[in-house]
Write a protein that binds this DNA or RNA. Structure first.
Lengths: 372, 372
DNA sequence: CGCGCCTGGTGACACGTGTCACTGACACGT
DNA sequence: ACGTGTCAGTGACACGTGTCACCAGGCGCG
């Protein structure tokens, strides 16, 4: 059945290496883990062990190692369902690299969409939803979601929930119960018991509206994505916009705000532009530069002048903002570096006793161009 | 030192569950794995076990399970360093979801950039680069890169290398030696011993050039990204463009081709546009719609008319292509669905004896708009 | 009673690793 | 000769799980 040429019986173990080198398994372990301090092995023996390991293509079994060690050095990060923006991807990538430099193995795992197989395990049969009703998977309180169980099974050193992933307090409890030393949520929805890195998207909305008000605009539309997946990012930005006018930051408190749902299609934008005159707005803050560019184009096609009739500001300062005419003003988001984040995670893993803290990790600034 | 309230001593094991339910550990295992067929446990006992497990918040230890089982159901996919386009992200996400429905645990792991700690293990100390010189990590032949070792340590059921990740034959050998049942590379660079899912980017270049030639253009520029990270995608597209003219597809063989490096900045685009008249081109194929939009804007600013003076075509059919004036023609890429891919992986895992095959998984078509 | 069958469950082993405690062998100082 | 110390290395256990082989007791049947 199996091809005898390529796939030999089973992966080599440290016992195989020991046999080949003519030493004990303990010696192999000492040599390969480079523990200078704990044992003294002669140079000749070391060489023999290394040679044997290389010849056999020996690679230690991570599962066995983690089992013995009790604590693994794995960091789990939730991967977003919806392809998020480039900054987001950059942050995730930076964090990953920095953590790896600190000796962690980083894995991005999907944050389970709704309705998948109730069997998270290794030997589960895909088609079966579980005959024992809700007793097995649904957990104790208000529904520990199944993906968190999968996370807990891996016994990670740290778990990082990136938006739009949300963790319930029950999730956090389960993870901590499974030995996770640091549970970190990124974003404003704070969860009891978890550390959090606040990247408060509300500040983006506040900064945008403050900028518009400062320029004398008073009737502000706010474009919110019609796509459901982006809610986790969009809602805080809208909330921030509202907060800014409530505080009356900058100018008078006579600012009016109108939410404008918009899908990422030309049709949707054209429809919005068609009813523009009836809205009576003199400024608009779009969730994103992508939405802003889309709307800007539709407005211009409909004869609305920017910035004379209406000021437009986007967010995230994407390249696209610089390619429109007029060039698009944008809220620039500068987030913590991946190295900082990694250091924070590492600190938490080392001293898990510390009570949950919050840390700000984002600064925003307005890049003013020609559209406002 | 540790907070006695939140983090109790150690995660509960199946032995704890057994003690609490007043049964043996074997019974717990039978009940929790739902093995109807293998053992007969009374309903009352089953209920007691489930209750105990829920009360304790018991979650099985994946490492121990994998160790015992020998083979895990984990699929490793390489995560690109550079944030690739939205289609790419979509494919990766689709594949992940589909695999999870088949009962696999999918993890994206970074495909190690150059120069990191030589210590892949669990107990490695981050700062130390390894005192034993090159003997330990560098492997046997031409440098098995360290990240592949990390992959092999996890003993995945399957490993998927997405571009720009490349696997050497030595890498493939190492993985197979570690028990990986399916090693799959995606993209044209075929590797001996590995299965591959060819998503041949050359077809994109061929289709674009064929379209331009069909419209009567003869002197074609090809924009290639100056960013090094995109080489894996860009080079094949350029090669495909060359191949198209070599074959003389469509029109005469008198087509001339000029590569045009371009960075994703306004300055770079302006510089290229400035020397445009000297190039004497009547058409341009850009690696990507992003680059195409950037160049289009720069050309228009420099007084070059599109499509009268020069035809412009991009690729990937992004939203941005529809927002320019004139609207941008683009090569649309339709890749295999995530479900298909997952089924392929599953098939390979089940019967690893099959000799490496190749499978096409991409179709391209030209969406003609106003810029050509 | 002896024997076999079924129900409901348990004891023990193996998976591969890291590390503590220990062992010979040899040198040295008194 | 004896205690002490160092060198080079080994034996054995524990980590948590899945599963094979076995067992106690009840019951039917000859």
């Amino acid at each position: 059945m199996t091809d005898p040429r390529s796939a030999s019986a089973s992966p080599p173990t440290s016992a195989d290496v020991a046999r080949r080198a003519g030493v004990s398994r303990a010696t192999v372990s000492y040599v390969l883990n480079g523990a200078e301090s704990s044992a003294r092995i002669s140079e000749a023996t070391r060489a023999r062990v290394h040679a044997a390991a290389d010849a056999l293509g020996y690679v230690p079994h991570a599962a066995a190692r983690a089992l013995r060690a009790g604590a693994s050095r794995m960091v789990l990060m939730s991967a977003p369902h919806v392809p998020a923006g480039p900054l987001y991807a950059r942050f995730a990538h930076e964090a990953q690299s920095a953590l790896r430099l600190l000796g962690y193995t980083v894995a991005h795992v999907a944050a389970g969409a709704a309705g998948d197989t109730g069997i998270p395990g290794v030997t589960g049969i895909p088609g079966v939803t579980g005959d024992d009703g809700g007793t097995g998977a649904s957990g104790n309180e208000d529904g520990t979601s199944v993906d968190v169980r999968a996370w807990a099974e891996l016994r990670p050193a740290a778990a990082v929930a990136l938006p739009p992933t949300v963790l319930t307090p029950a999730d956090v409890t389960l993870l901590k119960r499974a030995g996770t030393r640091a549970v970190i949520t990124v974003g404003p929805p704070r969860v009891a018991g978890a550390h959090s890195l606040t990247m408060d998207q509300r500040e983006v909305g506040s900064a945008a509206v403050a900028h518009l008000v400062e320029r004398g605009r008073r009737r502000v539309g706010v474009v919110v994505p019609a796509e459901p997946g982006l809610d986790a990012f969009a809602r805080p930005r809208l909330a921030g916009a509202h907060a800014a006018v409530a505080e009356g930051s900058g100018g008078g408190a006579d600012v009016r705000m109108t939410p404008l749902p918009l899908a990422l299609t030309e049709e949707s934008a054209a429809a919005l532009a068609a009813r523009w005159p009836a809205l009576g707005l003199d400024a608009v803050f779009a969730y994103n530069d992508e939405y802003a560019v889309l709307l800007l184009r539709a407005l211009q096609d409909a004869g609305v002048r920017v910035p004379e009739d209406v000021a437009v500001i986007g967010a995230d300062d994407l390249l696209a903002a610089r390619l429109t005419r007029p060039r698009l003003s944008s809220v620039r988001v500068e987030h913590a570096s991946g190295a900082d984040f990694a250091a924070y995670v590492d600190e938490l893993v080392r001293s898990p006793g510390a009570r949950p803290r919050r840390r700000r990790a984002m600064t925003v600034s307005v890049t003013a161009r020609d559209s406002t």
